[in-house]
Amino acid sequence: MSIWARSPPIYSGRLLIWSPRLPSTHDVVSQNFCEIPLGTVCVTDLQFKGRGRSKNVWESPPGCVMFSFTLEMEDGRKLPLLQYVVSLAITEAIKDVCRMQGLPELDVRIKWPNDLYLNGLKVGGILCTSTYRSKKFHVCAGVGLNLDNEKPTTCLNAALKEMISDSGQIKREDLVAAFFNKFENLFEVFSGQGFQALEELYYQTWLHSGQKVVIEEKNNGCVVNIAVIIQGLTPSGYLLATDEENKEFELHPDGNSFDFFKGLVRRKLE
């Protein structure tokens, strides 16, 4: 394992830990949070115990962008919204890299709550975990993104290959650097003004505005289907939806995010 430092790690990404093979970058930074400088990022070429939501295993072969980093937060009310800031930073970073290299823009979208999709197929995911200590939340944020593996679904560079005839490709190091440039700016806005200041940009990037969803409600032993339309996010970061009578519902994921619309837990907003 090698360590490279460019300058004091005041912001995320200033200190980089790299290894060709790790069980999980997330475990490295979370298990050593108090021993490494705040803002440290861990990058690997291959993970063999990658982590996803709900204890899912994330396949992480060579050809993926895989990194995790540390930060601190004091406001627990904002903590659930951090994964949306990370998701937004990676989609904006992809746009920046394509723009700077003269490549066609890839329309990578956010599938709530923490997946990244391209052309209807999953290409990445976000994982944020935290512990509370000394009146602060110690947060570990991780990003996994398929850059070069065309199977079993698709990847960013395969999509570019279909769009242009030359060999233009996104490089991992360019994408990681662009991510932290974006994340620093977005996190500063998020910390000072809250997620509302980023909502418009977020809604331009996610998949769900105006999406129709059927949720199930148990009533006196019977299951009733209710059709709702997703309107946005609630202040707590869950999905805000309305039915045909404009009654508002807060929708919570239940289990695997691949299937989250089938397992939504809902709460009527009074």
Rank of each mutant, 00 (worst) to 15 (best):
T91C: 14
A89Y: 03
L88S: 10
V65S: 12
F69G: 04
K49C: 15
K78N: 11
P62R: 14
N56V: 01
A89K: 07
F48W: 14
R77T: 08
T91M: 08
P80S: 13
M66P: 09
T44R: 04
S87D: 00
L46F: 15
G50V: 00
N56Q: 14
L88F: 09
P62G: 00
C64R: 06
E59V: 01
T44N: 07
Q47D: 05
W58V: 00
S68V: 04
V86A: 02
K78R: 13
N56Y: 12
A89E: 09
S54Y: 15
C42I: 01
E59C: 04
Q83I: 00
K55G: 03
G50N: 09
A89T: 08
G52A: 01
L88A: 03
L46W: 13
K78Y: 02
T91A: 05
Q47Y: 10
C42H: 05
G52M: 12
V65Y: 09
K55S: 13
R51K: 15
F67K: 10
L46K: 15
T44P: 02
L79K: 04
G52I: 00
R53N: 03
F48P: 04
V41L: 07
V86D: 00
F69M: 09
D45N: 13
K55M: 13
L81M: 07
T40F: 04
F48T: 12
T91L: 03
C42A: 15
T44Y: 10
S87C: 08
N56T: 13
G63P: 05
G76T: 01
P80M: 05
M66G: 03
G63V: 09
C64G: 15
D75K: 03
V57C: 02
E59L: 11
V57Y: 10
V41I: 11
G52F: 09
L71Q: 14
T44D: 10
F67H: 13
F48V: 14
F69I: 03
K55L: 13
S54M: 14
C42E: 04
L88W: 08
S60C: 11
V41S: 08
W58E: 06
T40C: 11
P80V: 07
E59D: 10
M73P: 06
L46G: 01
M73V: 12
D45T: 02
S54R: 15
L79N: 06
Q83F: 00
V86I: 08
K55I: 02
P80I: 01
N56D: 00
M73R: 15
I90Q: 06
K49A: 15
E72S: 11
I90H: 11
T40A: 12
T40G: 10
L82W: 10
V86E: 01
L71G: 00
L79Q: 06
D45A: 13
V85Q: 07
P62A: 06
R51P: 03
C64M: 08
F67C: 15
G63H: 12
E72R: 09
L79H: 01
R77A: 11
G52N: 06
V43L: 14
L81S: 07
Q47V: 09
K49V: 05
T44K: 09
D45L: 14
P62T: 11
E59K: 08
E72H: 01
A89C: 06
F48M: 08
